[in-house]
Amino acid sequence: MENNTLQIEQIMNALSKSWSLESSSKWSKDNPAKGQCGVTTLVVNDILGGEIKKTKLPDGWHFYNIINGKRYDLTASQFGEDILYMDIPSNREEAYKDTNDKQYNYLKQTVSINLDTFFNYGCLS
């Protein structure tokens, strides 16, 4: 669905402007997506719904979204190699174990502000 693709691009843009040390203690300028998978998956799930899936990686579980049957891993850029996705069913509770209230509330609010800016200031024709 093209509409989903457009929404994902807008959300990805808002996320890239929002990720910081406030949303993950592993964040860095060189790798802004690092440590953001749980909190990002939750915020995307808040906005678009869908399913939460996980894959086991050497450093632990990695979370991402399935929306209308399509996988969206908006934090894949944190890894230097391709991911072999297992698409193991997960849920909000498991993804939340990868974050905390402060990080989640910060990212949700900041993404919302960045999306509002996108829609309210003529970025969409």
Results as ranks from 00 to 15, higher is better:
residue 25 S to E: 11
residue 99 T to Y: 06
residue 25 S to M: 06
residue 114 N to C: 08
residue 73 D to C: 01
residue 31 N to P: 03
residue 124 L to V: 14
residue 65 N to G: 06
residue 102 K to S: 14
residue 13 N to T: 14
residue 18 S to K: 09
residue 23 S to C: 08
residue 17 K to A: 12
residue 111 V to I: 14
residue 19 W to Y: 13
residue 122 G to F: 09
residue 92 R to Q: 10
residue 103 Q to I: 00
residue 40 T to H: 04
residue 109 Q to A: 15
residue 59 D to R: 10
residue 49 G to W: 06
residue 81 E to F: 04
residue 15 L to D: 08
residue 97 K to T: 14
residue 75 T to S: 14
residue 100 N to F: 06
residue 68 N to G: 12
residue 3 N to R: 15
residue 84 L to W: 04
residue 123 C to K: 13
residue 27 W to E: 04
residue 68 N to T: 05
residue 55 T to G: 05
residue 76 A to S: 14
residue 78 Q to A: 07
residue 48 L to N: 10
residue 50 G to E: 00
residue 51 E to Y: 06
residue 12 M to G: 12
residue 19 W to G: 05
residue 108 K to N: 12
residue 49 G to K: 07
residue 30 D to F: 03
residue 6 L to I: 15
residue 32 P to W: 01
residue 20 S to L: 02
residue 23 S to E: 10
residue 40 T to W: 02
residue 73 D to L: 03
residue 50 G to L: 04
residue 27 W to I: 00
residue 115 L to E: 09
residue 55 T to M: 02
residue 86 M to L: 12
residue 116 D to A: 15
residue 26 K to G: 01
residue 20 S to H: 06
residue 107 L to D: 11
residue 25 S to F: 09
residue 96 Y to A: 05
residue 68 N to A: 14
residue 58 P to F: 00
residue 15 L to R: 07
residue 76 A to W: 00
residue 9 E to R: 13
residue 68 N to R: 11
residue 58 P to V: 01
residue 56 K to C: 05
residue 80 G to L: 02
residue 61 W to Y: 12
residue 36 Q to C: 05
residue 13 N to Q: 15
residue 49 G to L: 07
residue 89 P to W: 01
residue 27 W to H: 10
residue 118 F to R: 02
residue 111 V to T: 08
residue 3 N to L: 15
residue 20 S to W: 04
residue 22 E to G: 03
residue 82 D to C: 00
residue 36 Q to N: 09
residue 116 D to V: 07
residue 87 D to F: 01
residue 64 Y to L: 06
residue 107 L to N: 10
residue 1 M to T: 12
residue 115 L to T: 08
residue 84 L to C: 07
residue 38 G to R: 00
residue 54 K to M: 12
residue 85 Y to M: 06
residue 17 K to T: 00
residue 25 S to T: 11
residue 83 I to L: 03
residue 121 Y to E: 15
residue 99 T to S: 15
residue 124 L to D: 03
residue 52 I to E: 06
residue 111 V to L: 07
residue 53 K to C: 11
residue 44 V to W: 05
residue 122 G to S: 12
residue 18 S to F: 08
residue 30 D to V: 00
residue 57 L to K: 01
residue 110 T to Q: 15
residue 118 F to G: 02
residue 119 F to C: 04
residue 6 L to C: 03
residue 14 A to K: 06
residue 49 G to D: 07
residue 35 G to C: 03
residue 48 L to G: 09
residue 52 I to L: 07
residue 70 K to C: 08
residue 89 P to C: 01
residue 86 M to F: 03
residue 87 D to P: 00
residue 96 Y to V: 01
residue 67 I to F: 08
residue 120 N to T: 11
residue 109 Q to S: 14
